[in-house]
């Protein structure tokens, strides 16, 4: 006799989703625990770690931010192959503000976040009128060309970059700063996506024609999404700059473009938790595999292909399903 797997939503999920009738502490916990895991995990454990692992956490968080920003763009159907554009612009902005004007990180980081968001949005504005792959092509090309612009014209320190920038007062400050920003972005973006505004955004990627005929200016909304994503990416860049006390051409490097895409695809596109999980798997993994050199990038490339082709939903939706649904085998007659 053949069997088929049947999935049923757990009762509590149904109740929590539609009617909000929670009846016990157990049910409240059921809802709150998943959200609390990253919060507790990030904020409580990080301080206990050694310096080395804090470094790893910081660089993971940077990639996680870039991956979440990538995911935001993806919600509107914009495939970015150039997260390093955001990172690099944020990095150079913060670096220049610090180097030339002597502003402290407490000013450069917010300024670079907003400014980077605006600059990137302006740069990408013309492409928003076109379909998906143009955006992918242009985002891939732009950061690499901008780094050559720096190289050729020798502005902003040329190939040497801007060095000796102001560092954070101590490592713990940095850890807390980036983790709080990461959490705010994560929950903020999830909230945005769940709202009516988010419905419009995802509608654009689903069926832009339908959104246009609903009297909505899709270019304007896409620009807003790019601004959100680019600001987060620029924040990561500005933060990384003060972390390394350096802003330079490596900010536009391909690493910052590839890793976020791989992390988001592995973790699960469109969930924001997914990219976070993906980053927390891939970055430490790549740290562990440091000895392998170029082979790491081979792995990212293969991960990307395997997940896109074979497991397009990613890891997070799988976990989510296990948590929210019961499975059982039923007879197929």
């Amino acid at each position: 006799m053949k069997k088929r797997k049947e999935r049923i939503d757990r009762g509590i999920k149904v109740r929590a989703q539609d009617i909000f009738a929670l009846t016990s502490y157990r049910e409240m916990l059921y809802l709150l625990v998943p959200g609390a895991i990253p919060v507790v995990g990030l904020l409580c454990f990080a301080p206990m770690l050694s310096n080395y692992w804090r470094e790893v956490i910081i660089s993971t968080a940077i990639y996680a931010l870039l991956a979440i920003s990538w995911d935001m763009l993806m919600c509107a159907g914009l495939l970015s192959l150039g997260q390093s554009l955001f990172f690099g612009i944020g990095s150079y902005l913060a670096g220049s503000l610090n180097h030339y004007l002597g502003l402290p990180p407490i000013l450069t980081i917010p300024l670079a976040t907003i400014g980077g968001g605006l600059i990137c949005t302006l740069l990408l504005l013309p492409v928003l009128r076109l379909r998906g792959i143009y955006f992918a092509m242009v985002t891939l090309v732009l950061p690499l060309m901008l780094s050559r612009l720096v190289e050729a014209t020798r502005i902003l320190g040329g190939t040497e970059g801007l060095t000796g920038l102001t560092p954070f007062p101590n490592q713990l400050t940095a850890v807390f700063l980036i983790q709080i920003v990461l959490l705010v972005t994560l929950f903020g973006f999830r909230r945005i996506k769940g709202s009516d505004y988010g419905l419009v955004i995802t509608g654009i990627s689903d069926n832009d024609r339908s959104v246009m005929s609903a009297g909505i200016n899709i270019q304007w909304y896409k620009a807003q999404v790019v601004f959100l994503g680019a600001s987060v990416g620029s924040f990561a860049g500005a933060f990384g700059t003060h972390m390394d006390m350096f802003a330079g051409m490596p900010g536009f490097a391909l690493d910052y473009s590839i890793m976020p895409v791989a992390a988001a695809v592995v973790g699960g596109v469109g969930t924001f938790f997914g990219p976070l999980i993906g980053a927390f798997i891939l970055v430490p993994l790549s740290e562990a595999l440091r000895a392998l050199g170029a082979l790491r990038i081979v792995f990212y490339g293969l991960f990307l292909v395997i997940f896109v082709v074979g497991i397009p939903e990613g890891i997070f939706p799988y976990i989510q399903r296990k948590y929210q649904q019961v499975e059982r085998w039923v007879d197929v007659t």
Binding site: D196, Y197, L199, V200, G203, S210, V211, A214, G215, I216
Partner: peptide
């Protein structure tokens, strides 16, 4: 929701 979100409405 999408049409109801439009500026006209």
């Amino acid at each position: 929701i999408v049409p109801l979100y439009s500026p006209r409405v």
